[in-house]
Design a binder for these strands. Structure first.
Lengths: 251, 251
DNA sequence: GAACGCCGTTCGGCATTGTCGAACGCTCAG
DNA sequence: CTGAGCGTTCGACAATGCCGAACGGCGTTC
């Protein structure tokens, strides 16, 4: 790829690698995985350490992500227009539906959660902002797939017995999403849980994200094991409201 | 600085710049600020865009931070030992004190908030994880300064009429912190608010962070405008507990 | 206890790599 | 219509960062 700086690409690959694996990695592992000389890898890591993107454990010599990335990540949230426009509508959606609300975009073949409102009851929940979810097994992901040229991953990972793993079946589901204007997922990622999502459109009608609710199947679905039309209506209303905000913002 | 990759340093400088300024920046601005040729800057930005660290607004052509940074930032939180060890003790501290709890480390002359537990009451609060606070005007920062070789910034910014801006006064305050084993801040960053903090020690007794509570002055302080000894006790207990966890973790 | 293997680190020489500066197309304002 | 400003492209030069081999420390093994 001409015109690009490959030392930066290599640095990014190292960071991704450190983010993927749990815990610290050794210089040798990193160098071998990326097919780089140890000396080269060391130079990049030393530089990344200098700018705070990487830290080194003094006793083991291994490397891990650095603190500067945390601030960059939250700065991204502050800037992100999708998120800032969504916040005003996510809270009411959570209140009306009584469920947790999440907003997501596509990143590297996965769903990146950019906003998360807890379910209104006070049970323990963990913040999922910044986490990556599979495209084919979440309501947010299906909606994003349906309206994007982005293709689903070749290998559809199975999470539960209800996960859609057949490409044909998935294509049919996506067509269904396009026809209905919203998508759902029922026990396809975690047994006992379900979700509903609708697309958020930016300027020119382009889908830039998705908003949805998720929770226990018995609350999300009716007696026929189908998503509650009432919840679907809430989600679609919220998605339209955010889309209007985003479109209006593009004078 | 020999042995370091300067294209990566330049890329990091660009990212810091994008994180600092609010909103998007133009190529020209960036190039001028860093004394780089426009072509060079463009190559770096194009690469950063390729790896998702930077996004470009299609209509204005300006650049902003990218989504990949969000996941890297939260991955840092997952790895971070200071944070993971603190979580179990931060919640009880918030419950006992009835105040918001924050845990911080030093990053580039500021306090980086790595964990934040909301005040137990249900009033509206915004998550401060990832934000940067001044060292000299926060309880967390004073504690970190007192036990670190890191020097306070030459220029002490004034936030309120109570902010300590004289280096001599600050040095005295830090000495006080070292003697007492804890630090406080009363209306030095925001009028009406105060905070108490204590140091967290890692292996070998080295201070690696600080934990503290913050809230309205009338709840944090007694009638003599001094921090409640009861709250100070809670904070110090929590700090010791986390330190023990961290020390024990280093088999 | 000595030899081994593995780790992160250092260093010098080569050529690959990224840098520079000028020129291009474009949009917007005057 | 003209000018200034924007982001972008391109080619030539040499500075830059890459590579590979060698170093010193540590833990393990036999």
């Amino acid at each position: 790829m001409p015109g690009t700086v490959q030392s930066i690409e290599r640095a990014a690959a190292i960071l991704r690698m450190l983010a993927g694996g749990t815990g610290r990695l050794g210089l040798g592992e990193i160098a071998k995985s990326l097919d780089l000389a140890k000396g080269t890898t060391h130079g990049i890591l030393r530089t990344l350490q200098g700018v705070g993107f990487v830290e080194q454990d003094r006793v083991s010599g291994r490397y891990q992500l650095g603190a500067a990335l945390l601030h960059l990540g939250t700065s991204y949230l502050d800037i992100n227009e999708l998120r800032s426009r969504s916040i005003n509508w996510a809270d009411p959606l959570a209140a009306r539906s009584g469920e947790a609300v999440r907003i997501g975009t596509v990143l590297e073949g996965r769903v990146l959660v950019v906003h998360h409102v807890f379910r209104p009851d006070d049970t323990f929940q963990t913040l999922e902002v910044g986490s990556l979810l599979p495209l084919h097994a979440t309501a947010l992901g299906k909606v994003l797939l349906a309206y994007r040229s982005a293709l689903p991953p070749a290998e559809l990972e199975r999470f539960t017995r209800r996960t859609v793993v057949s490409p044909r079946e998935l294509a049919a589901a996506l067509e269904q999403v396009r026809l209905a204007g919203w998508g759902a997922e029922i026990e396809e990622l975690t047994l006992g849980e379900a979700a509903i999502a609708a697309p958020i459109r930016g300027y020119g009608g382009l889908v830039v994200g998705a908003i949805g609710v998720s929770g226990l199947v018995e609350r999300m679905c009716d007696t026929r094991y189908r998503p509650h039309p009432r919840l679907v209506g809430y989600v679609r209303d919220a998605a339209r409201a955010v889309s209007r905000d985003l479109g209006a913002a593009r004078h």
